[in-house]
Design a protein around this nucleic acid. Sequence first.
DNA 1: AACTCAATTGCAAGCGCTTACATTTTGTGG
DNA 2: CCACAAAATGTAAGCGCTTGCAATTGAGTT
Lengths: 340, 340
Amino acid sequence: MTSDQPTPTLQDVATAAGVSTATVSRCLNFPDQVTKRTRAKVMQAVNALSYSPNFGARAMASRRTNTIGAIIPTMENAVFARGLQAFQDELHSYGFTMLVASTSYRADIEEEQIRALVGRGADALLLIGHERSPNTYRFLETQNVPTLITWAFDTSLTRPSIGFDNRKAMRDMALKVIELGHRNLAFISARTTLNDRAKARQSGIEDAMAISELRASDLHMVETVYGIEQGATAFEQVMKAASQTTAVFCGNDVLAVGALRRAREMGVRVPEDVSVIGFDDIELAEVAYPALTTVHVPHREMGWRAGKALAELVTNGTPIEAIELDANPVFRGTLAPAKG
Amino acid sequence: MTSDQPTPTLQDVATAAGVSTATVSRCLNFPDQVTKRTRAKVMQAVNALSYSPNFGARAMASRRTNTIGAIIPTMENAVFARGLQAFQDELHSYGFTMLVASTSYRADIEEEQIRALVGRGADALLLIGHERSPNTYRFLETQNVPTLITWAFDTSLTRPSIGFDNRKAMRDMALKVIELGHRNLAFISARTTLNDRAKARQSGIEDAMAISELRASDLHMVETVYGIEQGATAFEQVMKAASQTTAVFCGNDVLAVGALRRAREMGVRVPEDVSVIGFDDIELAEVAYPALTTVHVPHREMGWRAGKALAELVTNGTPIEAIELDANPVFRGTLAPAKG
DNA sequence: AACTCAATTGCAAGCGCTTACATTTTGTGG
DNA sequence: CCACAAAATGTAAGCGCTTGCAATTGAGTT
């Protein structure tokens, strides 16, 4: 499989074209610093050899990688996909390459991935959410890799973010739900350890309850890991442990879709008996039946703005400006006034 | 933002620990070639400096990157996500890192991404489907980067694949559909240019028609780009242009879900009036209403087997063994006997 | 034809790391 | 306590590329 002809190097091209390596390098990187004639010769050699520059060497010599890393919790569901695609497209238009890594929502893996991407020379990093170990932040500091946080927005922290206020968004949604007469609320949450978004969403519901003179402590919480099946199980738990519940909030659409499914299986009618509310507004939400009431997240805008900010930071040193975007409730079929 | 203390190098660690760079290198790569005492000293220096090795330099010096690239058409939908996650997990267990890039189903971008990943030193590549320009294959050849094809299976080609036979899978599905009395069939296909999967799926339906003594040329084809909305539009076109259609095959679940939605909007009942069939069996399929009849693809197994094969090829030189997996019809709510 | 001066090109020094090979240290048995 | 092999460490030569600086080239002038 592995033949022995070594892959061609700059040197090979130079020899083939009868010029120095410097000229080839310039021809590739700054074409107009080179005569038309030389350029032709060099390009011909490049093609003849199918030469492709060695990225590591280039990065090392030039101390620039034109690479920006993105570390997301998961690739499994489309949650981050749309935003990431927009991020990548924007970066691409600036001539940057995106490197993605996923962490399965685990802090240790995240740290490992951060190191991996930094070691690979990422000029900057895109991270999801603010909360992580001080150690990780210290590392980023000493390596002095600029980072941008997304999927959250919090100016009280030093690190810039381009995202939305999870707490406020969920509060707004919860207020609407309470307005519809719901008093017995439950919340199926994703794991909250080192996940500020999950915590913020919970706080949002509690805020709304407090405002509406309900006792925040009455919120029936179930914490579970990510997944449709887990959402289903959690829903069943909720209905068993707190059968008077009329509105089930879910930390994200995936859990909500699971809840929906189990409701159907259990003969619980949505939204007649119980309302179900998601968060994220991914494709799943629209396709589910009944279509899911959820909090719409501006995936694409978040993605491209983040891409733009990072690209400009790296190329021109333009400091990142924190941007708060809106995340608004979208009302679809799974929400109805409380019965009775 | 960018402070001026340069990031620490191997040399810095060596100095701090009072040893040579060679020792630090060995300590990091082959810990047991080094005294416990030295190791302690070095590790302490490493931590104190938050040192992280420069990947490019390492790759260049050792001619190994421990990186395997995967190039997929899109990250937007979960189509490739699950398989990719499994691929990544498997690679990770072998100590490899995965690099992903997406092409938006465009051949030119694919070629660009292949070059990018190869330039980054990917030890091997995972590609989707067999069909691509000879030029691309030539490049892979001269760079001598081993590649594995997935999401397809075809032993008639030289390049090894671990996947399933799209044509056969779709044929089996179509036979069942025809068996249920459907005679007027339509196919909403993804773009077929440089997409052997799409073509194979079409051929599969045609095979089934031929077997069942229908005229393959009667299959009403609509070709469109990827997306729920596009699926919806295509469905409408089909119903207008060939209103007697009773079964609409879709090239993938995303299109099918779009078709489903438009059917509802148009007042066409699924499956009473028209049956809808997808392909891929991604989460969307299960969540859709009615749940989608589709061809189940063994995402996870394909992913981990590919990961294993590539990892073993790179580490031990074990040649890749082509593996054909099964992709079977899954019958859910959107398929019913033809009416009348 | 001699002379500027700017545009091209070549030279060579690294970038941060690994790894043969050489050297030193350590541990062992006599 | 010494000789000697084995283990640990150090030395230094690159890996393939970029880039500051010097040398060369070739117009354009006088």
